[in-house]
Design a protein around this nucleic acid. Structure first.
Lengths: 187, 187
DNA sequence: GTCTATATAGTGATAGAC
DNA sequence: GTCTATCACTATATAGAC
């Protein structure tokens, strides 16, 4: 694996674990076993490297989510598969965590990566709800665009609660709670 | 207002806006118009001051939430009043934001403040759901402990989505989505 | 209680040799 | 492409005068 690749992967890991402000170029270099000079040869600076690392993390998140959401079964089951999938909850969300980072919020280009990710995720869930409603699995009273957003939010908020508690339990309860509510709209 | 109080309030504001890692003692001093010496006279260091500021922010959050949750009306209406209350969504949650901060997570005493806050908030919402179920407003199929957690998570996740989008809209949709789901369980 | 001076370490980047 | 040197700046404190 070449140096640029090692730098990106190290940045991916550290951004996930510590956010942008909490991650220094030096820490990335050490984890990647690369020198100062290497990093600034391959990337223009911290933000450039972070951009590529965050994009990579976002792609992986979308890919993993899509896997569960595309599972066979009813639409309810597919959403349940997504919400209840095994996760290392206490690592937090590799994308959502950055939404609390002042430097990310101040940078339209970095924040844009988060925005895109959630737009995609939300849209994907909304599709399932729309289809589920059309085929009669969900009640007509269900509002797909709002409920999709609520489901996405439950996951992100579940991480926040779990990190605060230093326990995966609040995440799991929130996920079960969302499904419990969704059940009421299944016919 | 005395110096210690000004320092605490300045810290409250900066911690809310920028998190713990993103807030330096110097920035707090400048906002409070206090000198280096003053701060270290009244507090043992950054963490001590932050602890008191976060506790204050947490108390205010609980107090404001309780106000809406204690409103007159049906239990559904009280939860709706909480979810739909006017907020400056793009400021984020003054407590939840810190759940992404590596230094806060590494400090049991700081993290404990977040944990306590969400335990209280969750418990308060669960009470309403339990009472609402007992009086027949909600279906017996509703699981209060899980749904309470989901509601708390929707709010926290709503902030994450809104900050990412630099728009309050995702928060509002998530809140409406949660209520849309809850409606299905009202009799 | 508040001030200024000082200290150690870290941050984010640039320069130029190899 | 990588290395070391250097830089200006900030972070988080401590010391001691006033």
């Amino acid at each position: 694996m070449d140096t640029a690749e090692r730098l990106i992967r190290s940045a991916q890991q550290l951004l996930w674990e510590r956010g942008y402000v909490g991650t220094s170029p030096k820490a990335i270099q050490q984890l990647a076993e690369a020198g100062q000079g290497s990093m600034y040869h391959h990337f223009t600076g911290k933000q450039d490297l972070a951009f590529q690392a965050i994009r990579r993390n976002a792609e992986q998140l979308c890919s993993e989510a899509d896997e569960r959401l595309s599972t066979p079964g009813t639409f309810y089951e597919r959403i349940a598969a997504y919400l209840l999938r095994e996760r290392d909850v206490l690592r937090g969300c590799r994308v959502g965590r950055l939404a609390a980072d002042p430097d990310v919020l101040a940078s339209p280009v970095l924040r844009g990566l988060l925005d895109e990710t959630f737009i995609w995720l939300n849209g994907r869930i909304e599709e399932l709800l729309v289809e589920g409603r059309e085929c009669g699995e969900f009640s007509e009273a269900l509002v797909p665009s709002d409920v999709a957003c609520a489901i996405t939010a439950v996951v992100q908020g579940g991480y926040v609660l779990a990190m605060s508690a230093a326990s995966p339990e609040p995440f799991e309860r929130a996920a079960r709670g969302a499904l419990n509510l969704l059940t009421a709209y299944t016919t």
